[in-house]
Simulated assay, not measured.
Amino acid sequence: MSDLGPADLRLMQDLAQQVTALRPELVNGDATVGELAWVWAKDFDALNRFWRHRLWFVDGRLAGWGWVQLPYRIPRSDGKFRAVKTANLICQVHPDRPELLTEILDWYDETAGDADRSLILQDADVQARAIATAHGYAFDAETGSDDGSWHQFNVRELTDVPEPVLPKGFRFLTAGDVSVADAVKAHCDAWHSSSLTEAAFERVRRTWPYRADLHVLIAAPDGTLAATAIIWLDEVTRTAEFEPVGTHREFRRQGLGTALQLHGMQLARSAGADRMLVACLGAPAHPAARNMYYGVGFRELSHDVPLIKVAR
């Protein structure tokens, strides 16, 4: 399959709900309910033609899926090009069907062709890592190094959430209080490498389980949107997730990230969540986000094991 549409995405999110309920440490950090919604919606226009996906059903129920991004080269808004030379697989299998990973990796080989292949598994998923090793994958020492780009997944129970404290004149808002253009600008001011467009954000807003009242922002005294975070609430597992979280570069080191996290957790708890998830860079050389999340009570749930297979 090439076109990954809303119906198949929703099935993939349903499997994420099941794994989150049964074995949260086995949830691929790129395959949570919120991460799937965010990545699919924001990148659909630019990258859909480079995506391939397939679903595996057992007794009429989705038991596994694979989503491949083929190598690509696309123009950026600054006139340069954004290029990726390696194919990448995101996948998830039900905890009762670990053997499906073998079929997914066979399909990945066929789909990626002569491109080198990357894959992320979770450190706790010992069986999946053994299957991938038998399939020719090896640890990606560069990505997985102490200054690499691998991520860790963090969790916090939503008990005893302190009151947030904002600097004088700053105030909390939600996406319902601002225009689409302003919400996009707030994101891009926090993430300068982002190519989020208003059209892409409109798709984010239409993608389950986005809620404008759980998309929180902080306005500075002069009206600048200084920080932003989207909270994705899964009411079935009573789990909420921050993705993405960012602060305008001119307003960092003022405690806004901490205040936004605490405010967001209080909103998530009021909406019915019992626990909160968030991903961040896990390498020791990149401690800033991890330290902020640890400072508001998050602790590591799992972390990435990046793998690579060089094409013959």
Rank of each mutant, 00 (worst) to 15 (best):
S302M: 09
D30T: 10
M292F: 00
R290S: 04
V278P: 01
V278D: 03
E110Q: 15
P6G: 02
F251M: 06
V93E: 01
W38I: 08
I104L: 13
D3M: 05
L11I: 10
S118K: 12
T224D: 11
G60H: 07
Y210M: 01
F81S: 12
Y210N: 02
A41I: 01
L196T: 14
V27N: 05
R82P: 00
P6F: 11
A181Y: 12
H187R: 15
A124K: 09
R275T: 11
Q18W: 12
F139A: 13
L11W: 06
Y293R: 00
G60L: 05
R249I: 14
M265A: 09
A212G: 12
F251E: 04
R73Q: 14
D45S: 14
F153K: 02
Y293D: 00
T102V: 15
A219Q: 08
A200L: 05
L105A: 04
V93T: 13
D43R: 14
D116Q: 11
A311Y: 12
M265R: 04
A46Q: 07
A190W: 06
R76N: 11
A285G: 10
E202W: 02
F57A: 08
F44P: 03
F44K: 08
S179F: 06
E163H: 10
F172A: 04
D14P: 00
A130T: 10
Q127N: 12
A268K: 03
D3E: 08
Q127Y: 13
V204M: 08
A21Y: 13
L26F: 07
S302D: 10
G297N: 07
A212S: 15
F201V: 14
R249V: 15
P167H: 07
L196D: 11
I104M: 07
D222L: 06
K85G: 11
T224E: 12
P71R: 05
W150G: 07
A240R: 07
A259T: 08
W191G: 08
P24A: 01
C91D: 04
G297S: 09
R299H: 13
L47F: 03
F139E: 11
K85S: 14
L22V: 13
T197A: 05
A271I: 09
P287T: 01
